[in-house]
Write a protein that binds this DNA or RNA. Structure first.
Lengths: 165, 165
DNA sequence: ATGAATGCAAAGGTTTTGCACCCCC
DNA sequence: GGGGGTGCAAAACCTTTGCATTCAT
């Protein structure tokens, strides 16, 4: 098995196994449950879009998703993709994740454990991090100011030591 | 002097004195110096836009600035505002600051000391914070991953205890 | 006088909306 | 059968660009 490297030269970490078939069935059930609960309807397109996201398992902006869908399922229109991004976020299958260096909102698969992001400005790759101490400091800071934290977005933009400029 | 409250009911902190006339003269000089150094030219419109930003002294997105300029100086076109946002950022009079809850880049006056932001979801107000410990943790985390930090954006979205829902 | 800046309008790109038709429940 | 969903195209937005003109140096 050949050693993978990222576009910037950094050795690639193994990808998370988002798309096992059991996992996919589980997500599909989650979607169906949500739709039923909301009085919404299942559709072929809706699931195809969700499935595509699951199989990609990467950070994507809306336009990127439209392009991917158009490639894999030419029959599905852009409006349908945009409409379904909203639905899938509400269904907690997708979530808004960060703003990339172009100012576009990036989506990722919903998961229950929180993480923040590091964006490599050399290769565009998005890494995740989690730091309990930072989270704790954040919480007490917000509490001291008499606010109630709803969510936060902590993105660190970096260059990469591996990058040959 | 009546006690000010923010839209969400929170008592307002006194605004930073961005726009004293001495301060304005200083910024104007800074702009002139920058323009000269770059072989660019001073213009009435350019300064009027900068002056408006200084006098507002608040966080604004590009469109918000266009609207304000249009209101105060109807003769100035939107393209000029967009072109000058870039110039003013390069001149370190403005800087990109955060992404608001609508995904739009928000600009603020340039200052040398770094801070991050708390966005009140009840009233839209943007607060600033700075925490050395968080910064330090962030730096070592990034260093450990063999990245070089370029910048970061840390935004906490909150509700406000003062808000009556 | 020379090159930069402006205003306007047109073009670009992204996202939303209106509407006729289709399909899931 | 009825209300949601889809596709298409048009509209809405925001931002950039081209070009003739004006202006700063």
């Amino acid at each position: 098995m050949p050693k993978k490297t990222l576009p910037c030269g950094r050795p690639a970490a193994p990808a998370a196994p988002h798309a096992t078939s059991a996992r996919i069935a589980e997500w599909q059930q989650k979607l169906r449950d949500y739709l039923t609960a909301q009085g919404l309807k299942y559709s072929e397109q809706r699931w195809k879009i969700a499935e595509l996201i699951l199989s990609i398992g990467r950070h994507l902006d809306a336009q990127g998703l439209v392009d991917r869908v158009k490639k894999e399922h030419p029959g599905i229109g852009a409006a349908t993709v945009y409409r379904n991004i909203k639905v899938l976020c509400d269904a907690r299958i997708l979530k808004e994740s960060l703003t990339d260096s172009n100012g576009r909102v990036v989506y990722e698969l919903f998961d229950d454990d929180h993480h923040d992001h590091i964006v490599c400005l050399d290769c565009g790759e998005i890494f995740e991090f989690h730091n309990d101490q930072i989270e704790a400091l954040q919480n007490s800071l917000v509490r001291d100011m008499k606010f109630k934290q709803v969510k936060h977005r902590h993105v660190i933009y970096v260059n990469c030591e591996y990058a040959q400029k």
